[in-house]
Nucleic acid binder design. Structure first.
Lengths: 283, 283
DNA sequence: TCAATAGTGTCTCTTAGACAATATCGC
DNA sequence: GCGATATTGTCTAAGAGACACTATTGA
């Protein structure tokens, strides 16, 4: 485990990773207790990391945090409460960071290579900074963690990225232009992207990632962005309408000095019917 | 946590789960130390469970254990050594149970619902039976576990199913006719089967599951068994030979009073080429 | 009228899948 | 010869993908 530089320790506030899970209205002392004595509340060795995808303006985005005093960014993650399921823990973290009510989460891989713990968020010094009487012997935060990866598909426009005392910055980043990520979070992100692509080939994803009303060019751009390849607009329209997934509305969207595209909405029941019949390939 | 019946505790030998990971030539006392004081060696809360598939005589098999004194069967699983990767832990367990040198493992899902721990392998009584001075306070074996699931594809004929003191019975079971499984192992098995099918649709699997030389009817039967559906032999032959995955040999296999089928072997480099180019669909 | 984007139909090629007659082997 | 299994080719239907012109809008 590397010892962090002094600068970072000085900047570290008396709140922490847990703030991403608990109401910050709790007193610091309580939060710090949960941190220092976390083994009473959380599983030792186990965390979840979330790759939260959003889509906006032909760019696929991912939500990242920058903890105070750190140079690099992180995927929003957290620890797992005892008697809480992994998915529930992941949901809790996503909800805290996005304020979304309905969240679709997909487990894609669990990361357990010990190498991933070489560089750790917590150090003896940073823990002492929070509580100078902390017993560092075999402290849970200084031990190895395995992390269960989930990815989430969110409607960009509905998300309110939320920082806190632990991480003042929380924002969307274009997946094509990420900042440097700490630990093995780059690898986790890459695996999530692979998982998202495979998922996209087998599910009609628009429901999660587009607003209620959208145009054919909108949804085509979404697919092109995620799958990272150009598609023929005639073939695309053919496929998606023949599947019965979308319904044309009697409205057009005004987009300035060009022909106005029609608005569409998803056919929810058709969507569910297709999902129920197993794997479908949309595009 | 349910208290096991007395019968089971009486039958329990002074060796245990760990025997599946360590040479049994070690003294019992050492093994028991690893069990009782396992937190010094293993991650708390974390286990791996393996669904080891083998194929034989048109049946897809899975390797199961029956621990001494228990009525139900289990997937071969184990704990994860500190500083050991999840995959390495899973490999260790598979190797111990099969004696195979080359093992292909695929992580398919991690199971973390707390409900899965309601019924536990270990109880206060069974631990006391091993060491009557055991400190049960917050004992790691009585705490919740999350389990990382791997499935393995093995060549049935090369496997030597291996029991030990902890589980005297270790044998293949037809996936269509499984015995009762303990804990959530039925669910883990089902998820593995889904994972295997998806995998099979995207990879040429024969290499792992067939002997070096095989016939077209052999490999077709393998696919029919795993995917659980009949296939047309003309279409099947067409597809697999056009892909260049198999090479006809100048030998035939004698199968008694019928026309003798030709033997084939896999084209390894073609296989790797296809894999490298991303997802391919064989059948 | 122009610049920009939406919208639409046809053709070809590939592939999946249905389908059955002949060849070979051991007895 | 017979019973059993292996081997082989053609046709059709569906879908993927290539391809380009016209329509609409607002400035």
């Amino acid at each position: 485990m590397l010892v962090q530089n002094d600068e970072r320790i000085k900047k570290m506030p008396k709140v922490h990773y847990f703030a991403s899970m608990e109401k910050t209205t709790r007193k610091d002392s309580l939060i710090n207790d949960q941190l220092i004595n976390g083994e009473n509340y959380y599983y030792r060795h186990i965390s979840v990391d979330n790759v939260i995808f959003g889509y906006h303006d032909k760019e696929l985005k991912v939500l990242l945090l920058k903890p105070n005093g750190m140079e690099k960014w992180l995927l929003p993650g957290g620890y797992v409460l005892k008697n809480e399921s992994l998915e529930k823990a992941a949901k809790r973290v996503v909800r805290y960071r996005t304020h979304l009510k309905k969240i679709n989460l997909f487990q894609f891989k669990t990361f357990g290579n010990p190498e991933r713990n070489k560089d750790s968020f917590w150090t003896a010094d940073s823990l002492r900074h929070i509580d100078d009487k902390v017993d560092l012997t075999n402290h849970w935060l200084l031990d190895n963690f395995i992390s269960v990866g989930y990815f989430a598909l969110t409607e960009y426009s509905m998300v309110r990225p939320t920082g806190d005392f632990y991480a003042e910055e929380c924002q969307w980043w274009d997946v094509k232009n990420l900042p440097e990520l700490s630990f093995d979070h780059k690898e986790i992100f890459k695996e999530a992207l692979v998982g998202l692509k495979i998922f996209t080939y087998h599910h009609p994803i628009g429901i999660e990632l587009l607003p209620e009303k959208f145009t054919i060019p909108d949804i085509q751009a979404l697919y092109e962005t995620i799958l990272d390849r150009k598609m023929d607009n005639r073939n695309f329209t053919k496929k998606i309408t023949l599947l019965g997934l979308v319904e044309k509305l009697d409205e057009k969207k005004s987009i300035g000095g060009h022909r106005s595209p029609f608005l569409y909405k998803f056919n929810k029941s058709r969507y569910e019917e297709l999902i129920k019949n197993g794997e479908i390939i949309v595009i």
